[in-house]
Design a protein around this nucleic acid. Structure first.
Lengths: 163, 163
DNA sequence: TTGAAATAGTAACAATACTAACTAATGAGA
DNA sequence: TCTCATTAGTTAGTATTGTTACTATTTCAA
């Protein structure tokens, strides 16, 4: 006799999609808990980090680096510019493009936030052992198709980074 | 001699917070890819699923079930109500509360979407082996503090489900 | 060289997601 | 019973995130 199939619809806590949303929600909350003092959100921090490592890139390159839509990247950049944390200059080579540079204030803020950021990553993984944390990172990279195999190249082929 | 510490700032693909955001982005894109035809977003589907399993609950109870803010839950519910997928009635017991029920159209749509939903979960985990998928689910549950240990009780203590 | 395709950026729109502040109703203790 | 804290829901405001559509510019190919 067949099992009666009590629920056609699976429990939410079994669904990877739902769990990933919960994890994201948790991650954002943990970050903001510590970074609220500096009035920096997680994506703003990611953008600043990318500009720290790659000064002078344009918005589309930046969008690909951080895996955000170019429109989203544009609004985040605007907000940071309004706060004076980065500068936006006409590119000499391409008059369509805008060259992005962290301002001195932006650089200072980013460096000063390092301890905070490390702490928030630790809080995020607090419920996991060190090995589990590493395994989670590995699985997430594999899930999104960002294999560590390829030596450099980045960008990957993540669906949403299409433009 | 010390290693020169080439980058103060870690690579984004090492940071669990960034990877979780990427995974969430990917998850949403995969779901919408299949569910766009029904014009149902992932959170709308989660809300409908919860109402299917728990008909007649109020908005705050629903918000706790799906781990969303009560405001967000309210706007999603409004949108579904406007489309006729659920009904909202005054509660007899508590005149502040609104009792939520899936309409017949909502029930039909939800059931009809089951195959789509299963497929999108499969697509989401396509890069992982079955064992890796299960491990990811386990780690995410542990991360957000929703242990399978406790037999029933749910709700957990997720930071963002505070209200 | 010129005309079409591609690209960088923006604008307008929609949906999620949260906080803070509010209204209305409930409930519990003095 | 009266007051006050709590609770259900909404409104307003901010931010992220995406789509589609548009302008300006560049590039490539006929």
């Amino acid at each position: 006799m067949k099992k009666p199939r009590p629920a056609v619809i699976a429990d939410l806590l079994e669904k990877p999609g739902h769990l990933i949303r919960r994890a994201h929600q948790f991650s954002v909350a943990v970050f903001e808990d510590l970074a609220a003092r500096d009035r920096i959100t997680a994506p703003q921090h990611v953008v600043m980090t990318a500009l720290f490592k790659h000064p002078g890139i344009d918005q589309v390159t930046l969008a690909n680096l951080v895996a955000l839509d170019k429109v989203t990247t544009g609004t985040i950049v605007s907000r940071l510019e309004r706060r004076g944390l980065l500068r936006r200059e006409q590119s000499m080579q391409d008059r369509r493009a805008r060259v992005l540079l962290l301002s001195e204030a932006g650089r200072q803020l980013l460096l000063q936030m390092q301890q905070t950021v490390r702490q928030s990553q630790a809080n995020l993984l607090a419920n996991l052992s060190a090995a589990e944390g590493r395994e989670l990172v590995r699985l997430l990279r594999k899930l999104i198709g960002a294999e560590p195999a390829r030596p450099r190249r980045s960008s990957g082929r993540s669906r949403a980074a299409r433009q």
